[in-house]
Amino acid sequence: MEKSIEVIWKEGFLKNEILVGPKVTNLYNQKSIHFIDKYKRMFKINLNAIAIGSVVVLAASFFSGIPIMGVGLFLVSAGVFVVNKRLAKGLDRIDENVNSYQYLKSFRSWLDDQISVNKKMAMIYYPLIFLSTIMGFWFSSKNGQQLNETVMNELMVKYPDLYVVFGMPLIGLLAMVFILAVLALFGGKIYHWDLNIVYGRVIRKLDELISDMEDLRA
């Protein structure tokens, strides 16, 4: 005789009296792999964006008559690219045969190293970006005339007593040195803001994941 679905359900589970779930030991395996794969993808995309962006800016700067800025930004980006490309090799060295917790901890440690290196670099490259941008515009030329000459001529007419050092007004030079010092001083902090915008969510998720796993191990 045909059975109703209610009977199939009841009888079926009577035969399977003890339903045993999988052990909650291998938890997060899939999550860890997905997580790190996601980070790797993001990291790769960002590095490629830096490489492509720097070449585009370099080319555009020559067309726009601000090659110093383009060259400066290109060199800074190239430095960031090369260093991070080397750091990325460390990612492949993380042992995948360990458990999820150790895997994530190794990844976190790699991430800490990467952040620390970039933080130090940021204290140099943010001032360099600023310097090349200012220099780029200062020495840019339009219609055969250099911007610095035009500006200096106008300033000398308005302020004949202006104190000039290396062809620049001293006050401007001092302001530039001040900004460079601030950028060098706070480069690490600026990098952190930057990092937070791009990877903040992923990093928070990673820490949450590790903390959950630590609770699970407790």
Binding site: K3, I8, W9, E11, G12, F13, K15, N16
Partner: peptide, 10 residues
């Protein structure tokens, strides 16, 4: 997944 064939079909 289950030992009961009818339950698996369901």
């Amino acid at each position: 997944a289950f030992s009961d064939e009818a339950l698996n079909h369901l």
